[in-house]
């Protein structure tokens, strides 16, 4: 044992160098992949974002024109506000619902939790395209399951994805349905909270809600923040759902950031313009990533 420690603390220079060189071989595939499939695309995207480019003709440099035009583009601003709506309202609701469910499931008195966990996790396994098909039908105004269920309660359901007012709430329903991942992460975080803290709070006469407020939420904060950040980044990438279910309509109410980006790139062939959108998205994502790394000490083990 002693030998090992000594060894690892003060290795001879040559051994250290050799180890570092070996490590380079090990990480080489990632380095190549990162340079070719991540870094180069990001940098060339920055260049494209300052050009007028339709793939066939060589790009022509136009400086910041694309960015300026974006700020003047009402459709872009609409896609931005739609996405913001989903982040602020949809994201908050999803986080709260998943939190409630996972806190309930963390109750040690309850049995059969693993079965419930299966139910909540199952929707995340459904391929997106199939989930969209499923929800198109679930949300049908007259023959859909959602409005049938509401009908049992005596409520006349809205037109959901056929209505500009209700299309985003409809998509939030889908988002909540697929929040199994968040629940699992929450539960892993909850397990780290020592049971003794709850017990001593019980002896002090704290009820369930007091315990949640004073113990669970504060200790779970990093997990909640992590979930929020990843959820926001997922919402930024929301694409298949509006494409397959609504094509951005009605009244552009489901035209989200990534869908408009896709349209510009692959339907209107404005690669430069779409790249500018991608770079704005990158800046938003980077800010979130830095936040994640700085404030949550994400990934810093040992």
């Amino acid at each position: 044992m002693n030998m090992t420690r000594k060894n690892s603390i003060r290795k001879p220079m040559r051994a250290e160098k050799k180890e570092a060189l070996t490590a380079m071989v090990f990480i080489a595939p990632w380095v190549v992949g990162f340079l070719v499939f991540t870094l180069y695309p990001i940098l060339s995207s920055l260049y494209y974002s300052m050009t007028n480019y339709n793939v066939l003709n060589p790009p022509s440099f136009i400086g910041f024109e694309n960015y300026i035009n974006l700020l003047k583009d009402k459709v872009y601003l609409k896609s931005l506000t739609n996405t913001l709506y989903m982040i602020v309202i949809g994201g908050t609701i999803t986080i709260i619902v998943s939190l409630i469910v996972s806190i309930i499931m963390d109750n040690r008195k309850l049995r059969g939790i693993s079965l419930f966990r299966v139910f909540f996790f199952m929707p995340t396994l459904v391929p997106t395209v199939i989930a969209c098909v499923l929800w198109i039908w679930m949300l049908q105004p007259t023959t859909g399951v959602v409005n049938t269920l509401l009908g049992y309660l005596g409520i006349t359901g809205p037109g959901w994805i056929a209505s500009p007012t209700w299309s985003k709430p409809a998509m939030i329903l889908m988002m909540i349905w697929a929040c199994g991942n968040i629940i699992i992460v929450n539960m892993a975080g909850l397990q780290d909270i020592p049971q003794s803290m709850y017990e001593s709070a019980s002896i002090d006469g704290a009820n369930f809600f007091q315990k949640v407020r004073t113990i669970t939420i504060p200790l779970l904060r990093p997990v909640i923040l992590y979930n929020s950040v990843t959820l926001i980044i997922n919402i930024l990438q929301w694409f298949a759902e509006p494409l397959i279910m609504t094509e951005g309509g009605p009244d552009s109410s489901t035209l989200f950031y990534s869908l408009y980006l896709y349209q510009n790139a692959f339907q209107f062939f404005k690669m430069g313009y779409a790249s500018a959108m991608a770079w704005i998205m990158l800046i938003i994502a980077l800010a979130l990533i830095i936040f994640l790394l700085k404030f949550l000490k994400f990934g810093e083990s040992e």
Binding site: W137, Q140, P141, T142, T143, G159, W160, A162, S163, T165
Partner: peptide, 11 residues
């Protein structure tokens, strides 16, 4: 128009 859309839209 919202009602029209809900009324006529089918899968």
């Amino acid at each position: 128009p919202e009602k029209i859309q809900a009324f006529v839209s089918g899968a």
